[in-house]
Amino acid sequence: MTDDDLRDRMRRADPAASVRPLPEDEVRRLVAGAALDGPVAPRFSTRKLPVLVGAAAAIAVVAGVFVLNSGGQQQAPRPDVALPTSTQPGLENGSGLPDNSGGRPTTSVAPPTGTTTVPAPPVTTTSEGRKTTVVVLTDGPVDPDVRCRKPEAAVLRERAQMAFEATVLKLEGNVVTLRVDRAWAGEADLVEVRNTTNSPMLLGFEPEVGRKYLVAASDLQVMGCGYSGIDEPELRAVYDEAFPKR
């Protein structure tokens, strides 16, 4: 048997012989998930965002989120946005749920001074079949006295318009890019988060490339109070219970 004979025999047994080329759209989607070197970042105005209360506690978070929907989809049924927020170590939430939500603090606390939440309607642009949705939220510092109740599936189901499992693809400066691996609610392929705080925290943890997060968003705000965070079995169970498979 010559080398050529041997190679021919191996080629005939090639397990990849049945692998068919991916459709072009799928190739583009895969590459887009990794290659984001042409950053699609919003150019934020230099003018200050509105601050409702107090001058001492400045705006802590400005998150710009882009959700790139798959090609061909011209209009999303609802805003496709997930907005991880910055928070302090030891607290479970970022912007969290409003006080009248199921995730409300168990101790009655007045809204923290300096907090301002300005959910903006999504901006949709189309570029070569892709839609980009841009939302800006502002959020103030989290009051350390606030404690949240344990996340409940019923609350998640009722409030979350978006619920994603997403993997951090890259960290570049204050921009964190996540790839949506699974959508329980809402639709998105990619999420980019711009964090203008000095804190490196994302959903209560320092983001790591390759790490998975579960992110829920309500009214264009990330649901904090433990509803969004690192992908762990306990939190995932809440998502699975809230959004059972159909």
Binding site: G38, V40, P42, R43, P50, V118, A120, E128
Partner: peptide, 11 residues
Amino acid sequence: CPGVEQVDVEP
């Protein structure tokens, strides 16, 4: 959108 004036979207 407060705080957002323009967005550039590159292919």
